[in-house]
Computed example of a mutant assay.
Amino acid sequence: MLRFSANLSFLFLDLPFLERFAAAAACGFKGVEFHFPYAFPADEVADAARRAGVEVVLFNAPAGDWAGGERGIAALPDRVAEFRAGFDQAAAYARALHCPRINCLAGLRPAGVAQALLEDTLVANLAYAADQMAAQHGQALVEPLNSRDTPGFFLDRSAPALALIARAQRPNLALQYDIYHAQVMEGDLARSLQTHLAHIGHLQIADNPGRHEPGTGEINYPFLFRHLEHIGYTGWIGCEYVPSRGNGAETLGWMG
């Protein structure tokens, strides 16, 4: 049976962050995820999850100046110390939240920096992140983002992400496969999911166009959900979509 987690950076946004955990639980979610918890003490976030009875399944490592437009720093050669200090902070939150996965965002491609140096930096940082998570029996993930919504993002397709994962040679380093981003950049979703299943640590969903809930666009989610069960995917599926109406509670009919 597929397991869905509510992304609290997209759903229930009419509520303060720490109240969204209970809102997710009230809608039947057993897992939650979000972009960043760092504005709140780890014990307060852990308490919100505990009181709601939900598992925290994923969040992102610090990603630079998000409000200022940055979208990660893991591939930036001049930000290695910052990335690693941020990942240490993320790992501490993961311990407090009993969260087994942290996602690393590569960032926007800087002008004038060689492709090889960016790749080498990302591989080294991913290896560092994976080693930190191995110490607490967790995973580090890396996620391609589509370059239509995020122009200039360094890692925008599955194949180069998987190649860098292979270079890092860490068994607990995996792909965060967002079906929405993959549809925009690649398509061929069913075959891609089956081919890369062993290297996928987490899935996220939204429909295209619009990035709304399943059933609002072109992706045949009923087929993909059956396909994921058929090929044996057992991980979480994050609902990282912009609700087409309301705060998200009104958009869950697709879950059946």
Rank of each mutant, 00 (worst) to 15 (best):
1 M>H: 14
2 L>T: 10
4 F>Y: 10
5 S>Y: 08
7 N>T: 12
8 L>Y: 01
16 P>Y: 09
16 P>M: 05
17 F>A: 09
25 A>M: 05
26 A>I: 05
27 C>P: 12
27 C>I: 10
30 K>S: 14
32 V>E: 06
35 H>A: 14
36 F>T: 09
39 A>H: 14
42 A>M: 12
43 D>E: 15
45 V>L: 09
49 A>Q: 12
51 R>L: 13
53 G>H: 06
54 V>A: 01
55 E>Q: 15
55 E>I: 10
58 L>W: 03
60 N>R: 05
62 P>W: 00
63 A>N: 00
63 A>W: 01
66 W>S: 04
70 E>T: 01
70 E>G: 03
78 D>H: 13
83 F>S: 05
92 A>R: 15
93 Y>H: 01
95 R>W: 04
100 P>N: 06
102 I>D: 00
102 I>Q: 03
107 G>L: 08
108 L>T: 12
108 L>E: 03
109 R>C: 06
113 V>K: 04
116 A>L: 06
118 L>Y: 08
118 L>H: 06
121 T>M: 01
122 L>D: 02
125 N>D: 06
126 L>G: 14
127 A>D: 10
128 Y>E: 02
128 Y>I: 05
129 A>G: 11
130 A>L: 04
131 D>V: 09
132 Q>M: 14
135 A>H: 09
136 Q>G: 12
139 Q>W: 14
141 L>R: 05
142 V>L: 03
143 E>C: 02
145 L>P: 02
147 S>N: 15
148 R>H: 13
152 G>F: 06
152 G>P: 01
154 F>G: 02
156 D>T: 11
157 R>Q: 15
159 A>H: 11
159 A>L: 15
162 L>K: 00
162 L>Q: 06
163 A>N: 06
165 I>R: 11
165 I>G: 04
167 R>S: 03
167 R>P: 00
169 Q>I: 00
170 R>C: 12
172 N>D: 11
176 Q>I: 02
177 Y>G: 05
178 D>I: 00
182 A>Y: 00
183 Q>N: 13
184 V>N: 10
186 E>P: 13
186 E>R: 06
186 E>C: 12
187 G>D: 11
193 L>Y: 07
198 A>M: 02
199 H>F: 10
199 H>M: 13
201 G>T: 08
203 L>A: 02
205 I>S: 10
207 D>R: 12
212 H>I: 10
213 E>H: 09
213 E>Q: 15
213 E>M: 12
217 G>H: 08
224 L>S: 09
229 E>M: 13
232 G>K: 04
236 W>F: 03
236 W>A: 08
239 C>E: 11
239 C>I: 06
240 E>Q: 00
243 P>R: 07
246 G>R: 12
248 G>P: 10
249 A>W: 09
251 T>I: 11
